[in-house]
Design a protein around this nucleic acid. Sequence first.
DNA 1: CATTTAACAGACAGGTCAGTCTAGAAAGGG
DNA 2: CCCTTTCTAGACTGACCTGTCTGTTAAATG
Lengths: 192, 192
Amino acid sequence: MSAKAVAGPSARERLLAAANELFYAEGVHTVGIDRVIERAGVAKASLYNTFGSKDELVRAYLEQRHAVTAARITRYLERYADPRDRLLGVFEAQGELFAETGFRGCAFASASAESPGAAVSRAADDYRGWVRGLLTSLAGEAGAPDPDRLGRQLHMLYDGASLSARMDRDPSASAAARAAAAALLDAALAAR
Amino acid sequence: MSAKAVAGPSARERLLAAANELFYAEGVHTVGIDRVIERAGVAKASLYNTFGSKDELVRAYLEQRHAVTAARITRYLERYADPRDRLLGVFEAQGELFAETGFRGCAFASASAESPGAAVSRAADDYRGWVRGLLTSLAGEAGAPDPDRLGRQLHMLYDGASLSARMDRDPSASAAARAAAAALLDAALAAR
DNA sequence: CATTTAACAGACAGGTCAGTCTAGAAAGGG
DNA sequence: CCCTTTCTAGACTGACCTGTCTGTTAAATG
């Protein structure tokens, strides 16, 4: 046990890394268990001892993705102090994600379209709740009179930009979304 | 041949109807050929004589969906003459779709997440091009100084509303998107 | 050194899928 | 009355999938 910590990544970590690469690149339904364990260099029995089922592995993959994405956006926003900059910074952080090689859209939207089970739905709801909460609180800090309303609209822009980046193969969608977000914020502030 | 016209829907029509119901409700990857022919009341050989492969059936399903959706939105917009009303009417028409029982999000976004093949991509590109063109031309007619830019932003709202209606199970997303679209249009007109 | 634990490789079962093929039924035309 | 065409029913192949099970190996512990 203690040796595992110094002997490199554990089986669980290798499985999650392999699942992340394969599931995100090719889809949770397309990629079979055999490909995951082959890339992880792990026996099939180890996967089932660790996660119990493919559904649970998918859930763990999405949860990890949620944590990594949230940490990344939070970290990006640290560079700004002004509430308005922080709100618009969400779309800049999105642009960084879009520009990465291997970007394939929102993992939660894709996974829920591929295999709409309870496990995936719960993970997706968690992620979407976090994004919505972030945008709503930023809208409030920026002075919007109805933060829930603006947060919801910004969330739509956020999702729409992600979809456009994937389906139109256009990473600059985040810049257009950022401009639209600025216009929506200004309109909300003017109506105050 | 002539008898078929009076003897009810053809095998092709029944297959397309069954494909539309099953593929949209459960996903193109989840639903197998056997379920489609069973619902259509058609032999498997007839399907392969008519469409050649499942991929081609999926393509035909998406093309039909494109035509039906486009006709429906176009028809909805006929009630308005004012360019601004027509632009916002797109989101009202979307709201009608969201409110239907069995609404499950954008068929093209789901299909392309499920099976990202060339046939699906082409059908999705066609559909997205149509939506983008509609919103852009309506933005121009409404007086926006940069119709391409506004059309693109409205397209993101359109996609984001559809995603929210599906994943958040919230049909009222179209109303929020309509309000955001109005704000974006007003901002564009004010900057003129 | 002995024992226990965990990971390994891989065969296997049970099911589903796309697509092909055979054979029979129905129906219109000469 | 036969013939051609088209449809139907369904068996079948080969591939792939998830999940289980059987051994084997390696390492850590007492």
